[in-house]
Design a protein around this nucleic acid. Structure first.
Length: 329
DNA sequence: GACCCGTGGAG
DNA sequence: TCTCCAAGGGT
């Protein structure tokens, strides 16, 4: 859960997760929907699927306990070098290094590493240094302390060098360049993508259902439930936003391609902006009522008050809120 | 090595 | 409002 996610963000999910899946066996036997539902809102949903696959392997191959051997740990789905080292040092008290974002910042300053993060030579230098440092007593505590030092003292913007136990040994501090390290990897701007979404509903009041599809493997938000969407058509891209007619054409096309018909409103309900690390989505939201589906439609009616039982990403909740003012979250 | 994958808090 | 970046891993 903590991969690329702040600990404070993950904590409530962690507690709910353990309450729902108290043992490895419980998680291994759960359905993908149940696991993704418990993960909904946390992002990077592949982690949930990898965790699910990993715990299944732990149960099937290792009797429900994470194996002690480094090779076996590293071979589990979702367990890379960092997680393998965290398990080794914290759970098994083995002198294995870890390098997360915090450690990378501390060590790049300590040794004044001026090559960009992500580069092979940079990573090699960081892991080599971390490995040398952890070769002492209490490796788990040492690794966690190193991460805490980065999170609380050796912070990105305004490091508290006055409170740092390593200030006297820090090459970056000696040179006065600590705030310019580490050198970040070159950043790429999110690619703008225009989408049209159709929120198709059946029934009214508490019994109202919305038509959702489960995203296929290999697609964005794989395994999660979302409203039908299509990319904006070439006409709209060429003519721009003033071509209002083509906007509605996209909504019509979206409904048709997803095998749903009904009453499509004359104007969109609104617009949703959702930024991922590599994409910037602008979603025009349309409302279609009295929805009927053809037999081949991938859409499945879902009760609005039952969405918490499914894996549903934030983007979908934003879209539903735009189309259905009563929808919250 | 490059790219893909979500979300939210902090400054 | 905008930028940065989180206890990374897979392809």
């Amino acid at each position: 859960m903590c991969q690329q996610t702040r600990v404070d963000t993950a904590i409530p999910y962690y507690h709910r997760f353990l309450e729902r899946f108290p043992t490895p066996g419980d998680l291994a036997e759960a359905t993908e929907d149940e696991v993704l539902a418990a993960w909904s809102g946390l992002g990077y949903y592949r982690r949930a699927r990898l965790l699910h696959a990993g715990v299944k392997e732990v149960v099937a191959q290792y009797g429900g306990a994470v194996p002690r051997g480094a090779e076996e740990r590293r071979g589990l789905p979702g367990v890379g070098r960092y997680t393998a080292g965290a398990l080794g040092s914290i759970a098994f008290d083995l002198p294995e290094p870890i390098v997360d974002g915090n450690v990378a910042r501390v060590l790049s300053r300590l040794d004044r590493i001026e090559t960009p993060l992500g580069r092979a030579e940079t990573e090699r230098a960081l892991w080599t240094r971390a490995e040398a440092l952890v070769a002492g007593p209490r490796p788990g505590d040492f690794n966690q302390a190193l991460m805490e030092l980065g999170a609380l003292v050796c912070t990105p913007k305004a490091p508290g060098c006055g409170a740092c136990p390593w200030a006297a040994d820090c090459a970056a501090h000696a040179a006065g360049v600590e705030t310019s390290l580490p050198v970040p990897r070159p950043k790429k701007k999110p690619v703008p993508v225009s989408l049209t979404a159709v929120v198709a509903t059946r029934g009214r009041g508490a019994d109202r259902e919305v038509l959702l599809e489960r995203r296929a493997q290999g697609e964005l938000f794989a395994g999660l439930w979302m409203v039908p969407m299509v990319e904006a058509g070439p006409t709209q891209l060429a003519l721009g936003d003033e071509a209002a007619g083509s906007l509605r054409d996209d909504a019509q096309r979206c409904a048709r391609e997803h095998g749903v018909s009904g009453t499509l409103e004359a104007d969109p309900r609104g617009e949703v902006i959702h930024v991922l690390s590599h994409r910037r989505y602008r979603v025009r939201v349309w409302r279609l009522s009295a929805a009927r589906t053809r037999p081949e439609s991938p859409l499945v009616p879902q009760r609005l008050d039952g969405l918490s039982e499914l894996g549903v990403p934030r983007l979908t909740h934003k879209i539903l809120s735009a189309a259905l003012p009563s929808h919250e979250s």
